[in-house]
Design a protein around this nucleic acid. Sequence first.
DNA 1: CACAAAACTGAGACCGGTCTCAATAGCTAA
DNA 2: TTAGCTATTGAGACCGGTCTCAGTTTTGTG
Lengths: 355, 355
Amino acid sequence: MSQETPPRKPATVQDVAQAAGVSKATAARALGQYGAVSTSVRARVVAAAEALGYRPNEMARSMSTGRSGTIGVIVGDIENPYFGLAVRGISDGARALGFNVILANSAEDSAEERMTVEVLARKQIDGLIVAPAAAGDVVHLRDYARPLVLMDRTVAALAVDTVVMDDASAAAEATSLLLDAGHRRIAYLTATKLAGAHTEIDISTVANRIAGFARAMQAAGIGDPWAQVHFGVTPRGDGQGVIRALLARDDRPTAVLASDSLIALEVLRATKALGLTIPGDLSLVSFHDADWTSAVTPAVTVLAQPAYALGQAAVGMLIERIEGLIAPPRRVELPMRLIVRESVARIDLSASIKP
Amino acid sequence: MSQETPPRKPATVQDVAQAAGVSKATAARALGQYGAVSTSVRARVVAAAEALGYRPNEMARSMSTGRSGTIGVIVGDIENPYFGLAVRGISDGARALGFNVILANSAEDSAEERMTVEVLARKQIDGLIVAPAAAGDVVHLRDYARPLVLMDRTVAALAVDTVVMDDASAAAEATSLLLDAGHRRIAYLTATKLAGAHTEIDISTVANRIAGFARAMQAAGIGDPWAQVHFGVTPRGDGQGVIRALLARDDRPTAVLASDSLIALEVLRATKALGLTIPGDLSLVSFHDADWTSAVTPAVTVLAQPAYALGQAAVGMLIERIEGLIAPPRRVELPMRLIVRESVARIDLSASIKP
DNA sequence: CACAAAACTGAGACCGGTCTCAATAGCTAA
DNA sequence: TTAGCTATTGAGACCGGTCTCAGTTTTGTG
């Protein structure tokens, strides 16, 4: 059977029908698992299909059913292991439920995001999961009148299913850990840039974390924690410069909280370049339990994020909507877990820190 | 304009045509950038389309043009940063050339790969890039009678465009580095498992690297280098056990060559658990310049692989074929670059190594 | 000013499936 | 035996575009 030359032009239902001596409609029924077909005819059709190497054209099928069996996913940065893991959760979940995934990157840019939504919509995706680049610019998401799920970030203006993490309390917890170890000069590093004029933070995740950080700092009686927040620490941007400048200051922080594993890596790089040691000269806590954090020395204390579960939850909710679920928008919040390892040192509160 | 209620049912060419008072054919020409349309009519149609919020249905378009503008990519393990980077190279290249990508995982399993090819083919992809799980089982790839490009691995039985790296010479180079530093007991660690009965290595990359390793070892007068090759060092499998057992032996290796960054991480984990230090107790060289390798201490000496370029080259060749290029199968080999860092120590050849 | 060439436009087939509806066939109940 | 049903099957419309071909309108040229 493997030696027969495959047809130049792929076989269609029509071809199979002809070979089996039945009508196109009947062949389609036998092949497509719908409608009623007598067992004898079905066998004949299936045999013919087999012989012709028939392969159903999913595109044509989607054309008439109106469902593509594909969902779109837009994240800001696929490079980030956190999103990478979330996407895997989505993909696995989607496949298990019979859907495919088209993945796209927005580069954390709203305009790019808008164009991407348009492209995906044209491809007839059945639904969309997005980690919106900016909560303030979401008309394209509202206009996308189909099942939509927000992941990692909320948008007040969008009443749709949302899955997020408990960013505020996790940030507060990590900050408290540092505070309890005696640290007072704690810097919070995030990749997000403050857009020119307005200083509003347009990503709920970032805002919540900073809020949690500030809350914990203030509870410890430390004034103006916002001054300790450093924006624009991008791995492929000037992140390294920002960190080095920070660590070169006389009143340099004794501890840093990195908002993702890529930033933690930049911190490692900077301390290495500056000859500082962790946790001796600088304590470090990072968001996301990247694989390397537990393997290196010192192992990095992290806030483990259930990113895979995040993705699974998102795709689960999305597909429920696609299947027709009618219900008010749901909101799921997943808890992070603080994993204490070796990158945080105690500091003697009474001793002054050498500049 | 943003306050008009979007139509319940998306507008089609027909709707636009009607609104503009022209025939469907003319509207389609104006909207689809083909055929000739007078400027006045075009303006009228475009305006109508704008007003109706018309959005072309790519699926329908593909249906009649016979081209989906989508290419499929199958790799063994998306988790692996090496493939992750290659996939990004493919995605970026594809987008630049006007194509989309559907990504799939084969879990390094031929059967899974076969099913995936089938699924992608049904989705009418225009071409396929694959890092085949096994060179011995490729009928499904041969039967897939469309543009096909092999990436990272060659398959002698498949005369198609291929992009690979210079695995043999790179492995030899890294081994020589270790040899020159005085090492003699050098272990090669790979994730690949030897399939039950036959001990053939069914992945060209793995075979070539081991060949390069063995060649260098033999050139240094070291007998039976194959005994130093350890298979099945999978991060999510028993990799950790294998490494620990290896490092616990009296004649444990003084250096290891890890075939990817995930394995290097496992080595780090094992030495950490066993209280060994790198490079003091064990030297390490790893394939792939993962981001963490240069940030940690000691920084890991690596064989940098142009994975992004690998992906770009693959997608470039594939799309040339899709566009109709007729030419004998091409083969591109990309060079790796050895980046010496801090994870290799000199060993005094005259001194005996303590067990 | 007349006629050929070029530019537009409209009708309708087609891509490869699904799906509705009517027609035929086989079978049971009365 | 025959009306009444149900199980099968065939014809053809339809999804939303593209594309061919013929008919109509302009434009160009001698």
